[in-house]
Design a binder for these strands. Structure first.
Lengths: 236, 236
DNA sequence: GTCTATAACGAGATAGAC
DNA sequence: GTCTATCTCGTTATAGAC
């Protein structure tokens, strides 16, 4: 009885995975806008109505792919965070920051279509449900953790906080990183967006015929970016 | 004779504009991937084959929309560059930089779908022809001009140039901005990408439930960004 | 010469009857 | 689940109006 249920569940998990794999292939070939349950079903030798037992709608399949993608970058970032400094010199906030940035970039270059799904243009007619916000926050959480650790362990100077930004910075700190100084919360969110700006330009082809030594270029840019959140000594 | 040719040309220009307007509406409604010549023709009361007198293929229509969009942001940036300091205090490199950044952001927020077309996910199956690279460079050119002017007029210190970045920085400077110091060329390209990272996160909804006071947040972030290209005094 | 309309192709999606 | 009739699409060939 429970063996049967176990087998059923295993089968269900396998089919679900197969559906998502095929959907990811279509994502790469045709883009998220043209993702079609029917085409996925056809490719899997199923009939389209059978897919609805696994995903109640096209949007639910899309949501699953989005959540998977956010989880994948998030995990890459978390792994890089943990691994930083495991071998060799002890990790500083700066080395962790750069390691995480490089890990996110590497994931993006290895999975450009999934990256486009979550950090590119919104899919027309699709609006992300609440389920995506947790996974979407994972990379940001890693960046917050790095800055918090470095502030605790390395005793860094606070950047100045302009008056007109103070209310927003305080709300931001309270909402996304309780315990983090408001003066560093706002630059951190900005650096988060700027990090993905560097990656998006590379993944989406904006650097074609412009930047050639992309690895070293990115490393340098993301290192400089660390300065804005106080992880890099300020030059005079 | 020439009057007839004039009338014909005028009609041609009008029809071309009508096609692009309708195509832009579809862009907003369905996304670039689903842009369809037939639907455009239907909406205009024409037959699809008639469109081929104006655009030899669907991809050519897409290219025209992309070029128009790049030209529109580019013009917004150039206008802001010229206008900076026309009234009130004389413009510095920093005020120009912020003015241009805000202008690009304003255009993006006013035309999110055209913004997505050029700075979002690549359109599946479409590869941009050479015609797009000139228009695509306009915003970058404005940023380069700002930094060049400021370096000439305000005599700013050069940021350090790490050894491993030197070859790329020199190539970059020679290619995109002859006359600009390599040490500032690389940070400038990075800042260019980071600027659009800030804008893309806002336009694409990544700031939803995160950043609220977006105008002041952006202003502050883009001001800090100016630091990396030497337009803002470095804090100690 | 310049344009529009008709018709058609091959490929693919879609809806519904069975 | 299957099959079919009916849509859509990009694109081309052709014929005729101005």
């Amino acid at each position: 009885m429970s063996a049967i249920r176990g087998a059923r569940e295993r089968a269900r998990i396998e089919v679900t995975a197969a559906i998502k794999d095929e959907a990811r292939k279509q994502l790469a070939a045709e883009g998220a806008a043209k993702l079609s349950l029917r085409a996925v079903a056809r490719e899997l030798g199923m009939v389209s109505s059978a897919l609805y037992r696994y995903f109640p709608s096209r949007d639910d399949l899309l949501t699953a792919l989005i959540v998977d993608a956010y989880d994948a970058v998030g995990e890459a970032a978390e792994r890089a965070h943990r691994a930083a400094g495991e071998s060799g010199a002890p990790a500083t906030g700066l080395t962790r920051w750069v390691a995480v940035g490089c890990a996110v970039r590497a994931w993006a270059l290895a999975h450009p279509h999934e990256y486009a799904l979550i950090y590119g243009s919104p899919v027309p007619g699709y609006s992300a449900p609440q389920d995506t916000v947790g996974p979407a926050a994972r990379v940001g959480m890693v960046l917050i953790a790095i800055v918090e650790e470095a502030r605790r362990d390395e005793g860094l100077a606070l950047p100045p906080l302009p008056d007109e930004l103070r209310p927003e910075a305080e709300r931001l700190a309270a909402d996304v990183a309780p315990g983090l100084a408001p003066a560093v919360a706002a630059p951190l969110v900005a650096a988060w967006a700027q990090l993905f700006g560097l990656i998006s330009f590379e993944v989406f082809g904006q650097f074609n015929q412009v930047v050639e030594a992309r690895e070293v270029f990115f490393r340098q840019a993301v290192t400089e970016l660390a300065r804005t959140v106080g992880l890099l000594g300020r030059r005079g």
